[in-house]
Design a protein around this nucleic acid. Structure first.
Length: 653
DNA sequence: ACGTGGACGCTACG
DNA sequence: CGTAGCGTCC
């Protein structure tokens, strides 16, 4: 505990840190739990930080990906365990101020000496430091720290297992050696002993403290094991140059708050609520009775048992599990001419989604007028990021038009357009800047397949509209005769190939039969033969190795690729193709994030901050005076990834 | 009567 | 293909 240290001892501690080969660390919460406890309470605030200082002199080697021979030391007789309190009740007391300052000094030195900091959920650790010392430091100061997160390592080795806790990580990688769970729980026996309350608390404190030391040792050993495994599997470079730098970027992103126009939010909620009431009444009228519009089972009853609309319609889509007639958008679209109800339901659903998810749902995420999403780096199997509370990646793009019946005298009707993205407002003197890769997945498909027709499409600068050109090429009609419907169809087919979608899903999205859909896919593959070769090669490779690989070497094992069951096997085949394209796109987008972050950190003037990543799009908040300079930097950096990754196809931003 | 958790359906995003 | 999140129903 640094509070018990004298002046000389503090100097010694800083010297020890200077010589450290690694730090193993965890946050401690008010309730006594840590980042290593499975029952992590999110509501409990942070009390302090415990650091195990690995202090060997033999092999001081940073985790540079070039040093494959990276050796770790497991011996621990020289290791120091330090406790840094980060929460202070009364800041005006001089003694406490001194402690806070010294704690910060220790952490600052840890972050800047380029010695690896090992932490389970490192992003939360960094974000907390940024929040606690927000007044003392700028976000740029976490940039040169080297953090290692074993959870991310485990996810990289197999993205299918999420590793929900530290305990599960230990169980997975050291199945028997340690007996987890038994160490942690038994404080009841202490309570029965006839000791004073003070002594009891001291014993519990000491007990947890020792337990923590053991767990931090385990964490270090797991990381050691995982590092070796990453190197063996060829994932070390990806880990060090992409995923680890990303931890800091996400931590910084989570500390940034986006302002929301709460008045407008309230107003639109009311408008949408009124419109829902109107639609509800209209639906009851044409249905000839009341029912719950949000219930698909009740709607199914009305549409198909009461009105018997499906008999007039051939081949309607069924639900996945129960194989009932679906009430989804595609089915409702087909039923539109038979009855007025489907159209009303479609509008109701659109408005309801808007209200519940993007307006009322957003409101629950707002704290003091601001929102900031939580980013999950290990939440997907494809290498993408995911976001929650709010899911900023899923916020509706297209506006919804509402014809508002004016209840105030005067105007009779008013058309209001509601687009949720406009509810976010930038800081004063700043603007939002969005930069997105144009058709990134299709470009990657072109590169991976080396399909000449597809490559030509992107290499020739006269191509203005990719999907119109594909439609004209594929159907063999002049580009002037390509209609909107042709373009839309071409787009859907292209992406069903890119995403590896099957005939069923394409059929649904186009409103055609699976047979017609498979014919479309076949004729597409006939035209672009190399694309077909690519999918065949990918599946074949997956069958042999048991996994597929993205352009940056990201892996996805697919155990079902050799399954007997047709459904399981073909699903794995589509997942294999999809992973290579989607995963490679994720690689590129993450690389762009890292490079832009580095440029901004190096620059003494640039202040632009990343706000969100919507897969192929990066959203920044930029000082108005820096927009031109920064947007040029972003565009240049993103497009130059073609050379960095040696792509055949140019990238366009 | 009320809350909770899981299965299921639907639909935004890419 | 694969995320989050809203909703009902049991």
């Amino acid at each position: 505990d640094i509070r018990s240290l004298g002046c000389e001892e503090k100097r010694e501690l800083l010297a020890t840190i200077e010589q450290a080969v690694a730090f193993v660390t965890t946050m401690i919460f008010q309730d006594g739990s840590s980042q290593l406890s499975s029952e992590q309470v999110l509501t409990s605030s942070v009390k302090g930080v415990v650091v195990l200082v690995k202090n060997q002199t033999d092999h001081p080697c940073p985790p540079s990906y070039s040093s494959i021979d990276y050796t770790w030391n497991a011996a621990n007789e020289n290791d120091k365990l330090i406790y840094l309190k980060t929460e202070w009740s009364s800041l005006w007391e001089q003694e406490q101020q001194a402690h806070k300052k010294f704690a910060w000094q220790v952490l600052f030195q840890m972050l800047h000496c380029k010695v690896p900091i090992i932490c389970f959920n490192a992003k939360d650790f960094l974000r907390t430091l940024l929040q606690v010392y927000g007044n003392e430091i700028s976000w740029k100061q976490v940039a040169d720290s080297v953090v290692l997160d074993p959870r991310i390592a485990a996810w990289l080795i197999n993205p299918s297992d999420t590793v929900p806790s530290f305990e599960s990580l230990i169980q997975k990688y050291f199945e028997k050696p340690f007996s987890m769970g038994t160490v942690n729980t038994d404080t009841g026996t202490l309570r029965n002993a006839s000791v004073s309350t003070l002594k009891l608390f001291f014993l519990i404190y000491l007990y947890q403290y020792q337990n923590l030391r053991v767990n931090l040792e385990k964490l270090y050993n797991v990381m050691r094991y995982l590092a070796r495994d990453l190197q063996v599997q060829g994932l070390w470079k990806l880990f060090c140059t992409l995923e680890l730098p990303l931890i800091k970027i996400l931590a910084v992103m989570e500390t940034h708050k986006i302002h929301v126009n709460t008045q407008e939010l309230k107003k639109t909620s009311d408008i949408l609520g009124l419109r829902l009431k109107e639609l509800e009444q209209e639906a009851y009228q044409v249905a000839g009775g009341q029912f719950l519009l949000t219930s698909s089972s009740q709607l199914r009853e009305v549409l198909f048992e009461k009105l018997k609309l499906h008999v007039l319609c051939e081949k309607v889509h069924r639900t996945e599990i129960q194989q009932l007639v679906s009430t989804s958008e595609v089915v409702l679209n087909k039923l539109q001419d038979l009855h007025p109800l489907p159209k009303i339901i479609l509008e109701y659903r659109q408005v309801h989604k808007m209200k519940s998810t993007y307006v009322d749902g957003l409101q629950t995420c707002i704290r003091k007028g601001f929102i900031s999403s939580t980013w999950n780096q290990t939440g997907t199997v494809t290498g993408r990021l995911s976001a929650k509370q709010p899911n900023i990646q899923g916020i509706s793009k297209h506006p919804v038009r509402i014809t508002k019946k004016q209840y105030i005298k005067g105007k009779e009707a008013e058309i209001v357009t509601i687009s949720p993205r406009t509810l976010f407002v930038s800081k004063k003197g700043y603007s939002f800047l969005a930069a997105d890769f144009s058709h990134i997945e299709l470009r990657i498909l072109a590169d991976l397949s080396s399909e000449p027709e597809l490559l030509k499409l992107f290499q020739e600068p006269e191509t203005t509209d990719i999907f119109s050109t594909v439609a004209s090429q594929w159907k063999g009609i002049p580009s002037e005769e390509v209609k909107h419907a042709d373009r839309e169809q071409a787009k859907r087919i292209v992406y069903s190939v890119v995403y590896g979608a099957g005939k069923e899903r394409l059929a649904d999205s186009l409103g055609i039969t699976p047979l017609q859909a498979s014919q479309f896919i076949e004729s597409f593959m006939q035209k672009y033969k190399k694309v077909h070769e690519f999918t065949k090669k990918t599946i074949e490779q997956c069958r042999n190795k048991g996994y597929v690989v993205s352009i940056m070497g990201r892996k996805r094992p697919l155990v079902n690729i050799n399954a007997q069951d047709y459904k399981l096997r073909t699903q794995a085949e589509r997942q294999a193709v999809n992973f290579v394209v989607q995963g490679s796109a994720a690689d590129l987008c993450k690389m762009a994030m890292v490079e832009i972050f580095t440029s901004v950190v190096i620059s003494p003037t640039l202040t632009a901050r990343l706000i969100a990543q919507i897969h192929d799009e990066l959203l920044f908040e930029v000082e108005d005076s820096q927009i031109l300079e920064f947007s040029a930097l972003v565009k240049r950096t993103m497009e130059s990834l073609q050379q960095t990754t040696a792509l055949e196809v140019p990238l366009k931003v």
